[in-house]
């Protein structure tokens, strides 16, 4: 294109790369949770007002707005409250599709968090299914949720719908 022609063409795309570095601060409460993961244990926190156990805790009870300072160790078993099967490829994906992404409610916790379900075909995952965490080998454990490889079925009978209904 000649300079004259270029001058008459509208500019429709302007690429402006933006690169920003941040130092991330997980905070006091999340640090407790992350250090637990580095040891291969789940550490939650209990609200002093309502007694509910949060994992991971962000340091405050979202209902009462007070600090959750009592640390509670939880087992690595729980149930799938609900789930979806991810069948869409996207950037940053770590697992081959299709795979099951579930809300996992650990025994003794009052909040579920998202986890990967493996060692079972996607179409056999159920609401109420009992699962357990599979950790990475001890030498790979670190202060990250990546320490939990995935959850897998325990083979125990499913939990009754009524037992987890309020967590949906």
């Amino acid at each position: 294109m000649s300079g004259a022609e270029a001058g008459t063409q509208p500019v429709t795309v302007l690429e402006t790369p933006i690169h920003l570095d941040y130092v991330f601060t997980p905070g006091i409460a999340q640090s407790i949770f992350l250090r637990g993961l580095a040891r291969g244990v789940f550490l939650g926190q209990r609200c002093p007002t309502c007694g509910k156990v949060y994992i991971p805790s962000r340091g405050s009870c979202p209902v009462d707005g007070v600090a959750t300072d009592e640390v509670v160790e939880l087992p690595d078993t729980g149930i799938v409250t609900t789930y979806c099967v991810v069948n869409v490829p996207f950037a940053g994906q770590a697992v081959e599709i299709p795979y099951t992404c579930a809300q996992v409610l650990l025994d003794g916790a009052n909040i579920s968090f998202m986890g990967l379900i493996q060692e079972v075909p996607a179409d056999q995952v159920r609401m109420g299914m009992r699962v357990e965490a599979v950790w990475v080998p001890p030498d790979e454990l670190g202060p990250s949720l990546a320490s939990v490889k995935y959850f897998r079925p325990t083979g125990e009978p499913d939990a009754l719908y009524e037992s987890y209904e309020e967590y949906l």
Binding site: F24, P26, Q30, L34, T81, T82, Y83, C84, V86, V88, F90, G92, Q93, A94, V95, C101, A102, Q103, M114, G115, L116, M127, P143, S144, L145, A146, V148, L168
Partner: peptide, 21 residues
Amino acid sequence: QPFSAPLLAGAGGYFAPHIRA
């Protein structure tokens, strides 16, 4: 974000489990 699990579900993956519920 550091310390998080690798991206699991993407945008619709947040709402799909609630739809199932």
